[in-house]
Amino acid sequence: MNTTTTIAVTINGEGRQLDAGATVLDLVAAATGREIGPDGRPADGGRLGVAVALNSEVVPRVRWAATPLAAGDAVELVTAMQGG
């Protein structure tokens, strides 16, 4: 993995620089501050309660580890908030 260069992506509407080769799983782990296993579940056995859409397509958690991000990707990272 080449970690010396970065790519520009958009996360929840904000521009961010990520290491080239970063996967969706890396992104979710960084955003939530939790260690996540290759199955997309928290290593501590709890529940994460988040989901990811990459360029308007849902990426199931089992595919996070195998989904690399590319320059220009738009990521939506969502969770449950108060609502009626």
Partner: peptide, 8 residues
């Protein structure tokens, strides 16, 4: 619940 952007 509603689904909204995750905020750390």
């Amino acid at each position: 619940v509603a689904m909204r952007r995750f905020s750390p």
